[in-house]
């Protein structure tokens, strides 16, 4: 990379929360701007510099035929492609459509569904192009974003955990909500990175960073069921922001009611 590498930020189907995390780096934002040339970032400026770009941050999932074409062009124009957030990594909350019929949903929501031009599924960026690094979370953690930018500038591997949220709870001395309170918590099967934010605020982990490496969702589901979590609740627990992540998808489907009972 040159002395001031260029950075582009791209949006697909998403809420913009992850790219706004870059602007949320308030104290460090000037240092970021000093070290990288922000060439394309529409949440910050409508001015845009043409590619190629040293690094592209890609937010959002692929939900339209146009998205599918655009991500190919972005991949072509980018040195490193880093996806940011659960939408880009697993299809996001909009991947709920993957479990049902889009036509049916569109009829239920829109007065004129015929104006919609959308794909049957919401899919991860990595389903379409090669991805160099994925930042997880809904939204991503700004410390992780800064870590990635710092690591890329220093030419080192970023330190990003693949272990469970439980480790972060233990490191910050949060008492286990599952064991001490019997609360439903996805921490044991969820990738760390948030600093165990929700459990520290007395709320079980939502799993917004997606499955941890070796996530044994079936065993956790058995425990939660023994505590009184219903099958329907289990299905919903695994079917949120990372519904499309294979481990969570499989577990949520395992707790679906049989078709006849729906």
């Amino acid at each position: 990379m040159s002395a001031r590498p260029t950075l582009a930020v791209w949006k697909f189907s998403s809420c913009d929360g992850c790219q706004l995390t870059l602007l949320d780096c308030e104290d460090e934002l000037l240092a970021v701007a000093e070290h990288v040339d922000i060439a394309h970032f529409t949440e910050m400026s409508s001015a845009s510099v043409d590619g190629p770009y040293d690094v592209s941050l890609v937010e959002g999932s692929v939900t339209t035929a146009a998205d599918r074409e655009r991500i190919l062009a972005i991949r072509e124009a980018s040195g490193l492609l880093v996806t940011i957030g659960a939408c880009a990594a697993a299809g996001g909350i909009q991947a709920l459509r993957n479990f049902t019929s889009v036509a049916e949903l569109a009829r239920g929501v829109y007065a004129h569904p015929e104006y919609l031009d959308t794909l049957e599924t919401s899919t991860a960026i990595a389903d379409h192009v090669g991805v160099d690094l994925e930042l997880h979370g809904c939204p991503i953690d700004r410390h992780q974003l800064l870590e990635v930018i710092s690591a890329l500038l220093a030419g080192r591997r970023p330190v990003l955990p693949s272990y469970s949220v439980c480790q972060e709870c233990k490191q910050r001395a949060t008492v286990c909500l599952l064991v001490a309170r019997g609360r439903a918590c996805l921490g044991p099967v969820t990738r760390a990175g948030c600093g165990a934010l929700c459990p520290s605020l007395d709320r079980g982990c939502f799993g917004c960073f997606g499955p941890a490496e070796s996530a044994n969702t079936a065993s956790l589901a058995r425990r939660l069921a023994a505590d009184g979590t219903s099958q329907a609740q289990l299905s919903r627990l695994f079917r949120t922001f990372n519904a499309g992540a294979p481990a969570f998808r499989k577990e949520s489907v395992a707790h679906d009611a049989p078709p006849a009972e729906r």
Binding site: S164, C166, Q167, K170, Q171, P188, V189, A215, N216, S219
Partner: peptide, 13 residues
């Protein structure tokens, strides 16, 4: 291993 979550709680506690 069928039951183990590999979450690391045992080692950290």
């Amino acid at each position: 291993a069928e039951r183990c979550l590999s979450c690391g709680n045992c080692t950290l506690a």
